[in-house]
Design a protein around this nucleic acid. Structure first.
Lengths: 252, 252
DNA sequence: CTCCTGAGCTGGTCGGACCAGTGGACTAGG
DNA sequence: CCTAGTCCACTGGTCCGACCAGCTCAGGAG
């Protein structure tokens, strides 16, 4: 059977794009690793045989993607950055704002992520890891009497343990990203309440229940509790339209 | 209680960044909508009171984020684009390649996403939507005799219905993004097999089982079948290290 | 030995220039 | 009157040269 020609629409490839590609490829191949430095702009000009404007456009693109960072006056040149989820969060934030993406969808997504991570954790955890979780609970209880930042840090540590135990960092990364997006959306409504002591105590209670279910090996129950807690947490701050899908996630 | 000064580390804000912010803000506020055109670069130069280099760097950043598209010679100026998941996929792809992100994690993530969407769908679906799903199955069966592209399109239509019924487009967006990333990672191993007729038939069979479970209202079973199918699909092509978490997702 | 200074680099921004390409106005032809 | 072809103003892509403020570090003053 003779194939149709199947021509592809051709769009011009700009010079700065090929520079971006070359640098990204070098990163993927491992020729460039985080912490290393790129040559200075003027040096790149001669290496790529283009003008400085073109080099700079390429560097701006890489910089907006979180790949490199340029600092004025730094004689070492632009720095290759380790990967962070910041650009991912930025993209998702735009998706949430520009596209119609409701709060319910974001929260539902978090409920799924959190539930899945905890369900995996309750199945895959070792006894040592369980002890580690309980250790973070103790740290959280202690942090309540310090300040909200300490508590927030202990909470982060807990989720980090969950991520490691579930053996899927992508879940926790996405969870973290969406968490940041939601926070950005409802920041005004939550601002003066986050440091409430009662809130921290309730959060601790929730975490304790989850760990209890994990210890019992009941991943199903652990996930349901986690989703319920997340739902309660957000519902306390902001009216949620379209609750039915969220309720469905809790009912299982 | 007197607050500590709490100074923030200040990093210089470049001119091009403020241009990007202004345009993104205008997009979020709705002053700019997809399809509209930005003024020409030289016009923006006078509006922002900066040089063309600066305007161009801002445009390159926006372009790399999928916000606008510039075409040489277009007298209408840069075009505001509708949101696509392409930049999201690019970011995640980089995370997968540069950072340590295993195939198992990506596939596990898809299993969770797919399962959750289908579980939601089986709970929230109306009879009309169920009929719609079955309609796409008919279309898929018909598409098998045409070519692989038609089948792939019908498959996409099925997932689109699921996304709508689950009332959470974010789930399907993420699923789609990760699907693209995985495809990019294992493209070499899957290349010459994707158009196999047997494969299409098997895929259709899987979809049929899922719809059957959705009809029965058994979200639990529907999700498990979906996860199992996804696992089988990938396992047929590529050896999966660290299968235990994936198996845990299937066992429930 | 320490401290300070200054030179030489860095990136950030500017202004001007040229080019190939686009699209719409304008005109010649029906 | 409408259509088809030409032409030109303007677009974005790239280049060049210049200036500035800031960072490092070598080297000199104490």
């Amino acid at each position: 059977m003779a194939q149709e020609p199947k021509f592809q629409p051709v769009q011009p490839v700009r010079a700065y794009q090929r520079i971006v590609e070359q640098i990204e490829d070098a990163l993927i191949r491992g020729d460039l690793t985080p912490g290393q430095r790129l040559p200075s702009e003027r040096e790149l000009v001669s290496q790529f045989a283009v003008s400085r404007s073109t080099v700079r456009e390429a560097l701006r693109v890489l910089e907006s993607g979180g790949v490199v960072r340029s600092r004025p006056g730094d004689p070492n040149g632009p720095e290759i950055l380790p990967f962070t989820s910041a650009p991912l969060r930025k993209q998702l934030f735009r998706l949430a704002r520009v596209d119609q993406l409701t709060l319910s969808e974001l929260i539902g997504f978090r409920m799924i992520m959190d539930g899945a991570a905890i369900q995996l954790a309750s199945r895959l955890r070792t006894d040592e890891q369980l002890a580690e979780m309980e250790q973070t609970l103790v740290a959280m209880r202690a942090a309540i009497d310090v300040d909200f930042n300490a508590f927030s840090e202990a909470d982060l540590a807990f989720h980090e343990v969950i991520a490691r135990v579930s053996r899927n960092s992508l879940i926790e990364t996405c969870n973290e990203v969406v968490r940041g997006v939601v926070l950005g959306l409802i920041a005004d409504k939550i601002a003066n309440a986050t440091n409430s002591r009662a809130l921290m105590l309730e959060s601790l209670q929730h975490h304790t229940e989850v760990v209890e279910a994990i210890r019992a090996g009941d991943g199903h129950a652990a996930a349901r509790i986690a989703r319920q807690n997340l739902y309660d947490y957000y519902a306390a701050y902001v009216p949620l339209p379209d609750r039915e899908p969220l309720q469905a996630l809790i009912d299982d």
